[in-house]
Design a protein around this nucleic acid. Sequence first.
RNA 1: CGGGGUGUAGCGCAGCCCGGUUAGCGCACCUGGUUUGGGACCAGGGGGUCCCAGGUUCGAAUCCUGGUACCCCGACCA
Length: 490
Amino acid sequence: MAKEITARDVDYSQWYNDLVLKGGLADYSSVRGCMVIKPYGYGLWENMRDALDKAFKETGHVNAYFPLFIPKSFLSKEAAHVEGFAKECAVVTHYRLMNDPNGGGVIVDPSAKLEEELIVRPTSETIIWNSYKNWIQSYRDLPLLINQWANVVRWEMRTRLFLRTAEFLWQEGHTAHATAEEAIIETEKMLHVYAKFAEEFMAMPVIKGKKSANERFAGALDTYCIEAMMQDGQALQAGTSHFLGQNFAKAFDVQFLTKEGKQEYVWATSWGVSTRLIGALIMAHSDDDGLVMPPKLAPLQVVIVPIFKGAEQLNMIFDKLKPLMDALKAKGISVKFDDDDQKRPGFKFAEYEMIGVPVRLAIGARDLENGTVEVARRDTKEKSSQQLEGIENYIEQLLVDIQQSMYNKALAFRDANIRKADTWEQFLKMIEEPGFIYAHWDGTGETEEKIKELTKATIRCIPLDNPQEDGVCIFSGKPSKERVIFARAY
RNA sequence: CGGGGUGUAGCGCAGCCCGGUUAGCGCACCUGGUUUGGGACCAGGGGGUCCCAGGUUCGAAUCCUGGUACCCCGACCA
């Protein structure tokens, strides 16, 4: 009643916006294309960040921080790179304001023009490789495995909360290696880290693959990606890992002395995931009643709603449940006791469903008498009455079950929406249905472009470990040895 | 940058065609009371440069001109 959510099948975009705004994740800001990440949404990001950061550290990476501003000349050192980003860069041209002599507040001081303009980083390859040049002399300095958590700015024409905003938060790993083989291994390793995170923490199945040349990162030799299917059947790129070859090493003249005493250019990778993952999480799991958070990332895992008349009953319930709350916290499970006496239980139920808290406990006078508690799980909305005694173990297991069940559901949905097309006619028909299509492709950018023009579908990836089979391209009829994934994408 | 839409209280909207009391409704908010096992009720109360600027008029939320912001759909991208 207080907060209505547009149903998915009425208006999917509006449903998504409703969840972000009414679920308390983010808000529009006064700055075009930029959003405010609210505490609940930021808590989710913190949980994602912590899990990823741990995985990066476990694979030998360390964190550092590089400047927000990049000298304009740096960006142009790698031709493909500047080509890819030039159209969406914010540029700093001045460093001082002054009072408007005509009385209109402050204006840019025309005398404070920067000698060299600064670009607000859309990504940090150039500023980082400029440093790496000074840090790398010999093979003993390699590999160099650095990550940074940062904000970046890409001046997008059209933005959507979390999915595409002008400013967003992300991490970017930048590594340097002595050999191409080693760099490729690193690229693939980080892709697997992302895939594992998506599946184990986000409960979101992903397909690992390589991008076609058209979809490749600006400046990369190879871009690997994880692709997820959203509930409307569209694809969403959830993370990318790039093999950069020696492009940046050459652009910034980063050479090292080998064991044998030869000067060689180093080999590079970069990889990143962003707050876009929050958008993916929402669209992978949520329903018409609100957000559905996977327990491993939920900012709040368990909420307790007491049902009481008067302060005396409230206190009795609180005293009864205090040991449970302590037991849950001892297990590392976050729990909140909602003692707000201004809102009725029914309102709270709806509210916590809206924000996707995985487990809700309700307890009233009747339960106190019986030694029971009502347990409701958000993902299936099932409710059951359980003995209060030892309930912490039940809840701990329930969170595990919910996590697994959410993954299974998303996986079943995805697999039910993947089809094979063998002819152009089939493809045209299937692309109007939600989902991914496996189809043969002749490997040319021209064909890919044509298909995109005609159907809005792009090649999401060429899956890793893709089965090899002889076939003909659905569009050109030329021979092909493997199927690739086509879909409409975010 | 093209197409469409919307700017009226914190949020969602009505009023605008056809100018004329004090600009209204729902939710939220504040006070008091009764309530509390799925979005409570009663009574009282506070809150508005009607997006901005110009124009027409005795009189503009309403008509005219220009601007601006945001949302949605496309082309570009994570």
